[in-house]
Design a protein around this nucleic acid. Structure first.
Lengths: 113, 113
DNA sequence: TACTTGCGCAAGTAAATGCTTGCATTTATA
DNA sequence: TATAAATGCAAGCATTTACTTGCGCAAGTA
């Protein structure tokens, strides 16, 4: 279970990206997060642990709740790595723009799941 | 379940990131790439196939050689996703700047972004 | 033609991943 | 105090991943 546990690995999973997306907007406790997915609470709990392990989220104990909030500093590592190769796609700004517009629509449309 | 084979997954593996880095500088054939790693040619071949599958590299047959060149357009997807959360780390610009400066020195002056 | 080089395909393996169910523990509430 | 809620921990399981070795074939070269 040790294995690689870096930021690249962490964001490779779509569920974890969805979790990040969720708590980046607003902190939630574990159950609230799990309620938005089809898998069990335990599965989500594991994802949260992985995200916490590499510093992408912060978990605070509040009474019986464990509130998760985004601490996405580590993403800068990804950002920098990707930006090295920006020249490879920057002449395709049109496509990129479409992608951004889609993303925005998606995020305005539905918040959960 | 079909294996997930998206860009996030592709760059999650450090060997694949190293391959990208290698051929982004200059195209190489499969054996030349494999020569730079401790694993077998077959293992590298698989990585190359994965990278090609999600469009990160382009493989051209040239005689008996298969030349791999970087086509990193797909990285824009990562870039856009990460940039949504830029606010989470931008107050740590000092560290980031150091990192970028190092990177730029390493790559000897050509700026991206 | 005979040999070498480049490389894919296939089968096998060990480990990691993602998920489940079951149970224990702590904290809030009726 | 009894019960419900929030959550972790652990064992088990099916898939996927990252490798390996072995083999064959096409394209160059002696």
């Amino acid at each position: 279970m040790k294995a690689r546990r870096d930021v690249y690995q962490a964001i490779a999973d779509p569920t974890r990206r969805a979790i990040i997306n969720m708590i980046a907007a607003q902190p939630h406790n574990v159950n609230a997060i799990a309620a938005n997915f089809d898998v069990t609470r335990q599965a989500i709990s594991l994802h949260i642990q992985i995200l916490a392990d590499c510093g992408l989220i912060n978990v605070k104990q509040q009474g019986r709740d464990r509130v998760c909030e985004a601490r996405l500093d580590q993403l800068s590592e990804i950002s920098v790595w990707v930006d090295q190769y920006r020249q490879h796609w920057e002449n395709k700004l049109d496509n990129l723009e479409k992608y951004v517009v889609n993303l925005k629509n998606e995020r305005n449309g539905k918040q959960s799941k």
